[in-house]
């Protein structure tokens, strides 16, 4: 059994975290997938090469009748790791670019993304006005990107494969979409837009429909990111699981080759999902902002 694990470990670094979990449960074949799926979920400990590190646990706090558990979990930990990585990279890039006239290395690399987000996402969707919201969208893009990527590192975990994390990002997106619309149109126009421009008798039907529309946009953002990031992991985990189902090392190369391929695909998916989240957030912000400006443009 250990020889199998050793082979896998040397074949693919990215799955070494999974194999530890798997090794303990190979006897219960029917439970393998359930156990494998646990790997993508939150846990109160960190997986390290020699076992587990328990993270601090706090007693739940009761706020407004809701039990809130502020314990540091694996996903909170990787949330912070990602935040620190983003901060480090972005500050290094900013230092480099302000120092020299010609951007090089990390400064140039980050600037390519910044220019891309500005010229291909913000300005086409929101116009020149949107440049004001650049810091928010840049933070969203880089934070989600790095969170997506941390799961591809051995023993790492993807915080965005947790629906709570993506829900929180969607809540922030919701606030930004509404506040940018109110800022651009004024509160009166914003509320008038919610009635859908129909007769006031229909308002009791119309307003819930429009309000539901406001909520589903970020909700879809949340579910899309969560599903994509979880889905990729489930595919990798399932492929590795095949080895233990067949209980032979001879099938190992095929799932591992697939897993490595999927991992490369995951790199692309991580980038793509960060892009899509940023793109759609700016699109929704632009839709809210252009209700008034598009009328001006049409004349």
């Amino acid at each position: 059994m250990s020889s199998i694990i050793d082979t896998i470990k040397t074949s693919s670094h990215t799955i070494s975290g999974i194999t530890d979990t798997v090794a303990a449960h190979t006897e219960h074949k029917e439970n393998i997938f359930v156990e494998l799926l646990h790997h993508t979920q939150d846990s109160p400990y960190l997986e390290v090469p020699f076992g587990h590190i328990n993270l601090p646990h706090f007693p739940p706090v009761n706020i407004f009748g809701i039990e809130i558990d502020f314990s540091i979990t694996k996903h909170v930990f990787f949330l912070w790791v990602s935040a620190i990585i983003v901060l480090f990279i972005a500050v290094a890039a900013a230092r480099k670019n302000t120092k020299s006239k010609i951007p090089k290395g990390i400064g140039n690399f980050i600037e390519v993304f910044v220019v891309f987000i500005r010229d291909e996402i913000v300005i086409p969707n929101m116009g020149k006005e949107g440049v004001r919201y650049m810091p928010y969208l840049l933070t969203t893009f880089f934070f989600i990107l790095i969170m997506n990527l941390t799961g591809l590192v051995p023993y790492g975990s993807t915080s965005t494969s947790n629906v709570s994390v993506t829900a929180a990002l969607a809540i922030i997106a919701f606030v930004m979409i509404q506040s940018s619309a109110i800022r651009q149109q004024g509160i009166g126009h914003y509320l008038a837009h919610l009635t859908g421009g129909v007769h006031w008798i229909l308002w009791p039907i119309m307003i819930p429909i429009e309000v539901l529309g406001l909520f589903t946009k970020p909700f879809a953002l949340c579910i899309r990111l969560f599903a994509n990031m979880t889905g990729g992991h489930i595919v990798i985990v399932s492929l590795i699981g095949l080895i233990f189902i067949f209980k032979t090392i001879w099938v190992a190369p095929i799932p591992i080759a697939f897993a490595v391929g999927i991992n490369i695909l995951e790199l692309f998916v991580a980038l793509l999902q960060a892009y899509i989240f940023t793109m759609l957030t700016s699109l929704f912000m632009g839709l809210g902002m252009q209700v008034s400006s598009s009328k001006e443009n049409s004349h």
């Binding site: 539901l212 946009k217 909700f219």
Partner: peptide, 11 residues
């Protein structure tokens, strides 16, 4: 499309 599905799920 996703939003349409999301509306049904939310409701």
């Amino acid at each position: 499309g996703v939003q349409m599905a999301a509306m049904v799920i939310i409701m």
